[in-house]
């Protein structure tokens, strides 16, 4: 089981902050493809990946990154701290 977290407008578009998913995805991209098939709002949230960033186990990474035995994957827009 992986915890999939959503932040900012990604969370709003999907409608909740977290999913627990049973997945056999090898990479972040595989997981995105699985999520996209869930419902329309997931497809909408993941429509433009260039507008999204991803963290695996709280470390920023790329969409082609392997999931390995990751416990937490988070999707969010580019960050606006400071």
């Amino acid at each position: 089981m992986i915890d999939v977290l959503y932040f900012a407008w990604v969370r709003e578009r999907i409608g909740h902050p977290k999913d627990r998913v049973e997945t056999s995805a090898h990479t972040v991209m595989d997981l995105v493809e699985e999520l996209r098939t869930r419902e329309e709002r997931y497809e909408a949230a993941f429509a433009d990946l260039s507008a999204l960033r991803v963290a695996v186990d709280q470390e920023l990474t790329e969409f082609d990154a392997p999931l390995g035995d990751a416990r937490e994957v988070a999707f969010f827009p580019p960050m606006t701290g400071g």
Binding site: M79, G81, G82
Partner: peptide
């Protein structure tokens, strides 16, 4: 910190709310 720390700002004005 501006682009690598996971913070997101949402502004509310009289025109509405926007990230």
């Amino acid at each position: 910190l501006k682009s690598r720390a996971p913070f997101w700002k949402k502004e509310t004005t009289k025109d509405g709310k926007d990230w």
